[in-house]
Design a binder for these strands. Structure first.
Lengths: 187, 187
DNA sequence: AAAAACATGTAAGCTGTTACATGATTGG
DNA sequence: CCAATCATGTAACAGCTTACATGTTTTT
């Protein structure tokens, strides 16, 4: 009675990497060692079982490639189901709470969006991101007014959170400018 | 043959909260609901077992308090062992990689430091924090020069990471000023 | 009488990690 | 021939989380 499986965050990272380029488990590990993806380990015990699970559930498929003399490699690529799942993940609407809880996931989505979405879609993502960030910033600022008495450490922590969000708003602005420069559609 | 147990991050959060003030599991849950501690759940299934584990390992102890007519509550407080463990956690030296991987842990430490450390010690923490942040920033900037070709999304992600760290350096500056104002020892 | 708040727990399970294990090929 | 790199896996476990379960006291 296998309950419906949907990929974990690590699963989506793997889908994102395989969407860039079909790879073996080993290639994925090497990529994650040179360019860390969130906080995930690149150890074999993390990557290989996660790939097997994606394969078992039909998000990816593989061919075994025998290159001259080298040990054969199992090269994975996305199935249609995998492509759809990745696309759905990348296009998911943001929640305000994601700014607090899932920032690193949002940034992973932004990175993998390059290989699947148009500049227009990326712009929409950034607009949504900035909007939700502004909402969250105003929530935090109202907390400052009501709670920041008594504790200096707490007040400074809140201040840091606000600076953090403000920085992300500014970043989104910059990023949007960069995309508007390449997409002549929006004036 | 129980291997030596040392608290997890959630364990340290609980030690920090109980060090502020002895509380029941229920009180801890309420505190974590109003003031989220990192990304931890405040659900009973998370908190009660974690408290039992700390108690079993001698970091906290409890008394059952029967208040007038109310259901009795198990109120936890730190033992000497618990105080030492909390202090050691709070005073641990930072690694540069903590800026990338454990930022939220560092911020939790900063918050709980209020109840255990002097302003001088907090200043040392912030100095160390700023120093490591500067090192990490320069590493990231050198990556920009070597890797930022080809991918706009990747370049923007890197830029965001750098802005993040710079923001934290500025925050540490502000925070240090705030503490120097209260500690007249350092000119 | 019922709902809401007080108070504490257990059981099942998911996710991912480290540590262990194995073997082939290539370069020095 | 030895080390490094290529390549893939398994087993045990830590550390949660959600869902379930239970009962009391106060407020409406």
């Amino acid at each position: 009675m296998a309950r419906p499986y949907s990929p974990t965050l690590l699963g989506y990272v793997l889908l994102g990497l395989l969407n860039q380029l079909p790879r073996s488990g080993y290639d994925v590990r090497m990529e994650m060692e040179t360019t860390p993806m969130g906080h995930f380990s690149s150890s074999p015990g993390s990557i290989y079982p996660a790939l097997q699970l994606l394969k078992k559930n039909g998000f990816i498929d593989s061919e075994v490639i025998h290159r001259s003399r080298l040990k054969p490699r199992e090269v994975f690529h996305l199935t249609e189901k995998g492509k759809k799942a990745l696309s759905a993940w990348l296009h998911k609407r943001l929640a305000v709470s994601d700014l607090r809880d899932n920032l690193s996931e949002l940034m992973l989505r932004f990175r993998f969006m390059e290989d699947i979405a148009s500049g227009q879609e990326t712009l929409r993502f950034l607009q949504d991101f900035r909007r939700k960030a502004r909402t969250y910033a105003s929530i935090l600022k109202s907390q400052t007014r009501t709670q920041a008495e008594s504790s200096l450490h707490f007040a400074l922590s809140l201040q840091r959170e606000i600076s953090m969000i403000q920085m992300h708003i500014d970043w989104a602005d910059q990023a949007m400018s960069a995309f508007e420069a390449t997409e002549p559609n929006t004036p």
